[in-house]
Design a binder for these strands. Structure first.
Lengths: 337, 337
DNA sequence: GAGAACAATGTAATCGATTACAGACAGAAT
DNA sequence: ATTCTGTCTGTAATCGATTACATTGTTCTC
């Protein structure tokens, strides 16, 4: 015996399935006592409407998909949490996927979400260029919202941070603390936010007179291990710069740990900065100066676009929501100029 | 013009919808040149099968649901990541929900997953007793797997840690380091793993001769802030114990931070231990002695149960997979006895 | 060359809801 | 009394796939 269907309820309540549907969803008025009878029948059978059947008929679901590159990075999980929380209020379910930084998996997950008839896809594309093709293809049938990162030439809504302003603020801060030379450790420059932060760092260093030697630009994976490896390479390559600018907090954690192992003192020997301000950055052995991303505001902006796209508002051109960064000064740059 | 359907493909390829279905899914043989024609037609239209329609007809989906209490705790996000990764390999999609520690939301999400016709629900129930009713109700129609925590009297599969063994190992360690008195800071004892760890801690303290005064048992929220608040209360209540045992790493982070602010030295004045071993525990101001949860093994065990439930294996009685803890000794208990 | 066995394909029923359309009934207006 | 209006309810079509069953054509056997 499978799950009860609307016909079972209809039979028990002695009405037609149409009436049951109307009574339970309230789509059309039903006489009070009939409604009660239907409700009672539904309750006694433990009936729960089959959303699959409903979705097929209505040609719409209440699902949205989300694809992030990495769930071990708290930045993305906080983003997921913020989005999920707000979607709940809108009675929307979240199909969550991780691309594990792999464009093939990413493309595969996009197809899967497309088949699932999600109403919107929220995505932080893993590769600025290689992600573009799959994104463009999907964007023809499903509205896309890009978050934080974006893929080259894919014209969709976007929500993210003003990286240029963030880097300007950050570099100004370390210049005030006496930095004249810098190194940059970031994600491989194939993801758009890694590249955009690196570009911004380069530009600002140039403008503010900080030497950022190309051989001190180290790109790798956005993980603690990636940061630690980079700090190692940096220390082997000769004189340390005044400051190591990291493209993400998790990278900076690895750098702090690496320097600690090597006996290099932060901030005395070298300053270190992060980017994201995830919760643990205040707790590290040496607390981290970083750029705070307004993750909750990002989630809120993204969901408000979702709402827009799922409502029956007229289509509108893609919109970029650029949010403001905030500099958080802590011990890792605590040095007098 | 909506998305192309199987009829569009059939018309273009000059065959029936049945043949298209068989050609694309491979459910029955189709002549080679016909198959190619169908494939070509599908490609040229950008056809992607509607999983909603398929699910309705087959009376099964390829979705599983997962409900965790808190996505800001890395323990749960790592669990989600491990599960998601493995489900991908099985071509299964994940509907992720957070209950935000609220049994009402939890019950609501369970209903929603039930309506979505998920094949299995993975859940870490938020409340040992109050979650039970909703869980029991849902369990009648959808197979449930409980992870880490469990709800009272709900007989389903379960995957989690041997808390008793973990506490025994941990307390033995701190006894060796000279602990004679202890405090316990954990989640409010309404979630089963909080209670089971507390019970285990009480029992082991008793057995190993460590005084765990009831007024030194502080229960609150499993967050950094919760830990910090508890450390405050503890320091105000008089003499510090030899060791503060925390029910989760994030709590311990807050405790470390709280003691740091109060000028209390760890491990000299008091030792601190965590539970989970999330990645940041090696990086905190003072690295944390903790119990490592084999998160990946937990995810693997859970997904293997999923596979079991979704395959056509005969039903079998609920099974409890109890995994082994590992003690990780770091600086927060680094003291000679 | 008749009949059996099999492979490939088509026709139409099916999954469980929603909803267009039609009908029944009550009360109001003329 | 008749028509009209509005409210409720029922019948059956519908969404897009899969699949039971029927049909066609082919190959094989004797």
């Amino acid at each position: 015996m499978g799950k009860p269907t609307i016909s079972d309820v209809a039979r028990l309540a002695g009405v037609s399935t149409a009436t049951v549907s109307r009574a339970l969803t309230g789509s059309l008025p039903v006489r009070e006592h009939v409604k009660e009878q239907v409700q009672a029948a539904a309750d006694s059978l433990g009936y729960a409407a089959n959303s699959i059947a409903r979705a097929l008929r209505q040609e719409r679901t209440t699902n949205v998909g989300m694809i992030v590159p990495d769930l071990s990075n708290p930045f993305f999980t906080l983003l997921v949490e913020g989005v999920e929380h707000r979607l709940q209020d809108l009675q929307i379910s979240l199909l969550l996927c991780s691309s594990h930084g792999d464009v093939t998996i990413e493309a595969e997950r996009l197809r899967s979400l497309q088949r699932s008839q999600v109403e919107v896809v929220l995505i932080s594309p893993t590769h600025e260029f290689e992600s573009a093709h799959a994104l463009k293809t999907i964007a023809r049938t499903v509205p896309l919202i890009q978050i934080d990162q974006f893929a080259d030439g894919v014209e969709t809504d976007w929500v993210g941070l003003d990286d240029a302003l963030a880097m300007r603020t950050l570099i100004q801060h370390v210049v005030e603390r006496g930095a004249r030379t810098a190194a940059y450790i970031g994600g491989s420059a194939t993801d758009s936010s890694a590249r955009s932060r690196l570009d911004a760092a380069r530009a600002e260093c140039l403008r503010q007179g900080v030497a950022l030697d190309e051989q001190n630009v180290l790109l790798g994976s956005v993980t603690i291990a990636g940061g630690e490896a980079a700090s190692q390479r940096l220390s082997e390559s000769g004189a340390l710069p005044d400051v190591v600018i990291c493209g993400a907090d998790v990278i900076a954690y690895g750098v702090l740990q690496g320097f600690d192992r090597l006996g290099i003192k932060v901030p005395a020997d070298v300053m270190v900065t992060g980017f994201d301000d995830i919760a643990f950055s205040a707790l590290t052995r040496l607390s981290l100066t970083t750029i705070r991303q307004p993750i909750d505001a990002i989630a809120e902006a993204a969901v408000s676009v979702v709402q827009n796209l799922m409502g029956d508002a007229p289509p509108r051109p893609p919109h970029r929501s650029v949010l403001q960064p905030e500099l958080i000064v802590r011990d890792s740059t605590n040095r007098v100029a």
